[in-house]
């Protein structure tokens, strides 16, 4: 090949490259988690790379969840394969039961958004058999039993264990609170602050920050409602009364995009149900990806 032909091809390559790359950015991308074989099959097939395979499964789930979350911020609704995500994480723990990532991710994604607390607890209880030195799994279990399941005796047991392992006063204080208190929003905020301080992954941190912002908003409304009850001897008919009574300067916004209201029992609720809009309500068919 002569030098001139080679130079012409090189020039052609340089010219086509930006257009070529640009066209690929617009290609349709399938957001799919895919099938994961049975853990025993994977254990046999991965030879001495079980830990690597286990971590790869977690990264796969994390990437998938990050893509779904990103799409939801762009108002394109993708229904996440939560059952498959859970199964994949469970498989990962069977390959490497010591890996913290699947437990951490399950705690982050399956409790608040899905309410699959019992499944997450089963995973965490499997984890503490192996990560005996780690207070965080006990902490998650303690929190889940208290905040979601209202089983304070179990919550106190796990939180006390977390305190014993770590010597951290936070866990000990929470254990004490679970024995004697039941201020749910306050507990949630304490937990979330601890989780945000530890979060490294931006998608996970964002999830926690959203939740914390929502709980801060609810907490301020709850306090104003309590003041209103003490002043007027009754609950406000609607939240606007709190602003009119100067108990709130402005009604806090729900970071999940909904609006706050008082339910029939006088508890603060949100139309968003404090969840990212993974549901397809109010979204046109063209924006929904099954």
């Amino acid at each position: 090949m002569s030098r001139a032909v080679f130079a012409a091809l090189l020039l052609g390559y340089l010219l086509i490259l930006p257009v070529f790359s640009g066209s690929l950015l617009d290609r349709p991308v399938e957001i799919k988690l895919g099938y994961v074989p049975h853990p025993q099959v994977l254990r046999l097939a991965s030879a001495d790379h079980k830990l690597l395979t286990g971590e790869w499964l977690v990264v796969k789930v994390l990437y998938y969840f990050g893509s779904v979350l990103q799409k939801s911020f762009e108002h394109v609704i993708v229904r996440p394969e939560f059952a498959n995500m859970y199964r994949t994480l469970q498989t990962s723990t069977r390959l490497d039961p010591y890996n913290m990532d699947p437990y951490y991710f399950a705690q982050a994604a399956f409790t608040w958004e899905l309410g699959r607390v019992k499944e997450v607890n089963a995973l965490l209880e499997y984890g503490i058999k192996h990560r005996s030195w780690d207070p965080w799994l006990h902490f998650y279990l303690g929190f889940n039993y208290a905040y979601f399941l209202k089983e304070y005796d179990k919550a106190a047991f796990y939180m006390q264990k977390a305190g014993e392992i770590s010597g951290n006063s936070l866990f000990v204080n929470l254990a004490a609170r679970y024995f004697y208190e039941s201020e749910q929003t306050g507990l949630g905020l304490t937990f979330l602050d601890a989780m945000i301080a530890e979060a490294k992954d931006p998608a996970i941190r964002k999830t926690y920050e959203l939740r914390r912002d929502a709980l801060v908003a609810i907490s301020s409304i709850e306090q104003a409602v309590e003041h209103y009850r003490r002043q007027h001897g009754r609950s406000p008919a609607e939240l606007a009364e709190l602003v009119n009574s100067n108990l709130l300067s402005d009604l806090p916004k729900d970071p999940y995009g909904g609006h706050f209201f008082l339910d029939e029992r006088g508890r603060v609720r949100s139309s968003s149900k404090l969840a990212p809009s993974f549901s397809t309500e109010g979204v046109s068919d063209s924006q929904v990806i099954e």
Partner: peptide
Amino acid sequence: TFSMRQVQEL
């Protein structure tokens, strides 16, 4: 850095 909680271990 793909790991959320255990970079050293990964």
